[in-house]
Amino acid sequence: MLMDRYLVLLLSAAILLLLIFNIKTSRRFNMWDHWLHHQLVKKHDGYSWQVIAFINDPKLMVVWDVLLAGILLNQERDLTALWVLGTLGFADLSGIVLKKMIRRKRPFLHSKMETGYSFPSGHVLGATTMGLILLQLFAKEFGVGFIISVIALWVMVIISRLSLKAHYPSDVIGATSLAIVCFSISQQLFLAI
Rank of each mutant, 00 (worst) to 15 (best):
85 L>G: 12
55 I>Q: 01
49 W>M: 11
118 S>L: 02
122 G>S: 06
111 S>W: 01
60 L>F: 13
73 L>K: 03
80 T>A: 09
180 I>C: 14
3 M>T: 09
106 R>K: 11
121 S>H: 01
91 A>N: 11
75 Q>V: 00
138 F>Q: 08
68 L>R: 03
183 F>E: 12
36 L>T: 05
16 L>E: 05
121 S>T: 07
128 T>L: 00
103 R>P: 01
97 V>R: 01
102 I>H: 11
77 R>P: 05
122 G>N: 02
79 L>Y: 11
101 M>S: 14
69 A>I: 03
96 I>P: 03
22 N>V: 03
159 I>G: 02
52 I>A: 06
177 S>N: 06
144 V>Y: 09
119 F>G: 01
109 L>G: 00
148 I>Q: 00
49 W>S: 07
170 S>F: 02
16 L>M: 08
103 R>S: 10
42 K>Q: 11
84 V>D: 12
36 L>V: 14
189 L>D: 07
122 G>T: 05
132 L>V: 10
83 W>L: 07
172 V>C: 15
32 W>M: 14
79 L>C: 03
149 S>C: 13
155 V>H: 02
65 D>S: 15
122 G>F: 03
116 G>D: 03
130 M>V: 05
12 S>M: 04
177 S>I: 03
27 R>A: 13
190 F>E: 09
24 K>F: 07
80 T>W: 06
42 K>T: 11
132 L>K: 12
20 I>V: 15
35 W>R: 15
124 V>F: 00
53 A>P: 05
172 V>Q: 02
173 I>H: 04
116 G>T: 07
57 D>A: 11
176 T>Y: 01
26 S>L: 11
23 I>S: 02
55 I>Y: 05
16 L>C: 04
180 I>F: 08
74 N>A: 13
12 S>K: 06
112 K>V: 09
90 F>G: 09
37 H>W: 01
140 K>N: 14
116 G>F: 04
160 S>L: 03
34 H>F: 08
156 M>R: 01
51 V>T: 10
116 G>N: 03
167 H>K: 13
164 L>W: 01
25 T>G: 00
179 A>C: 04
170 S>H: 11
75 Q>D: 12
104 R>S: 09
19 L>I: 15
14 A>P: 00
18 L>D: 12
135 L>R: 08
20 I>F: 09
153 L>E: 01
74 N>C: 10
187 Q>K: 13
135 L>N: 05
74 N>W: 15
60 L>R: 07
28 R>Y: 13
6 Y>M: 06
11 L>P: 00
131 G>N: 05
153 L>V: 00
188 Q>P: 00
90 F>W: 12
64 W>I: 00
129 T>D: 09
65 D>C: 15
105 K>M: 13
141 E>T: 15
138 F>D: 09
169 P>W: 01
107 P>E: 02
53 A>Y: 00
156 M>H: 00
21 F>A: 06
42 K>F: 05
64 W>G: 09
49 W>K: 05
76 E>W: 06
81 A>Q: 07
15 I>C: 12
173 I>V: 15
131 G>Y: 01
10 L>G: 12
23 I>M: 09
